[in-house]
């Protein structure tokens, strides 16, 4: 199990837009480089990509405020 940490402080989003489905759901298989969410910092959006392959379990929720280095998900 590896933790995927937030690269930036901001707001974490699990979906690309409010009316779109989540990028990934708990238990989904992800490949390294897959987009799993977005971090909004001062109205600018950065994609968060999986840094390992495996089954994903989210720790941070949609629209949750996060700090840089805070765990967003576990992949393993």
């Amino acid at each position: 199990m590896a933790q995927l940490l937030s690269p930036l402080p901001g707001t974490f989003y699990r979906r690309p837009a409010p009316d779109k489905p989540a990028y990934k759901n708990d238990g989904d298989k992800v490949a390294k480089g897959d987009v799993i969410g977005l971090i909004e910092v001062m109205k600018s959006f950065t994609e968060v990509k999986a840094d390992a392959a495996g089954k994903i379990t989210f720790i941070a929720g949609n629209e949750e405020p996060v700090m840089a280095g805070q765990p967003l998900a576990e992949i393993g």
């Binding site: 930036l8 402080p9 901001g10 707001t11 909004e40 910092v41 001062m42 109205k43 405020p65």
Partner: peptide, 12 residues
């Protein structure tokens, strides 16, 4: 002001 926090949640 000196020591103030600039949070990431709003515009810059």
């Amino acid at each position: 002001y000196q020591g103030c926090e600039v949070p990431p949640f709003y515009d810059s």
